[in-house]
Design a protein around this nucleic acid. Sequence first.
DNA 1: GCCCAGGTGGGTA
DNA 2: TACCCACATGGG
Length: 232
Amino acid sequence: MTWTEQLLEVYRLLLAAYGPQNWWPGEGPFEVMVGAVLTQNVSWRNVERALENLKAAGVLSPAGLRALPQEELERLIRPAGFFRVKARRLRALLDYLERAHGGDPTALARGDLADLRRDLVAIPGIGPETADSILLYAAGRPTFVVDAYTGRLLSRLGWMSSRTPYEERRAFFMAHLPPLPSLFNEYHALIVRHGKECCRQEAPRCCSCPLRAICPWPAGSGRPQPGRVGRP
DNA sequence: GCCCAGGTGGGTA
DNA sequence: TACCCACATGGG
């Protein structure tokens, strides 16, 4: 099987097991952007509380957040953890949005994707994963989001080392999948769903894994089956 | 009490 | 490049 066929097979199995995930949770490109920063290294449950605080205060908009004193912003996003650094990061993102796009969060849906991604990653506190999350889920652009769950999955399948750098893992998906935002969207969401419900460690595999037919880790074993581990 | 969760950036060898 | 650490809250 080609990598494309294998990747689509994984997608098919996950979709059959879990159904469409309808990501990103939340409404509107701006809320998605804010959520992408707030969710850094934190469970989504914590982020929901912070977003609710911002909504309740009526400030979940570019103008609303910009008008907020920094201490107040920190207080509202406190449940999302790392609230001081994340308040700074949100401020930096707002500054970029204002400077480069006149404060219009929908502007990211237009323009050259590689240029936008480079600009986002240049913002302090916006790394490649946050940038890709914003571009895919807030702007509907065909860029693949690679997170901790994705790394674990690639490692479990024996396709890539868990130490493979972000850009290399992202390039793998993008080189072998058609660049469809809807596919990238659902694929990443399914990987997260699978990671939360199954295969929380790299091994052994749980017996009910939807990927058990192709997973090189036999259930209950600490070792992959020989001959099934390769690298793209 | 301990570990983990949809990262990022800075420091050191 | 490869580690190590700070950043902080909330749930199991």
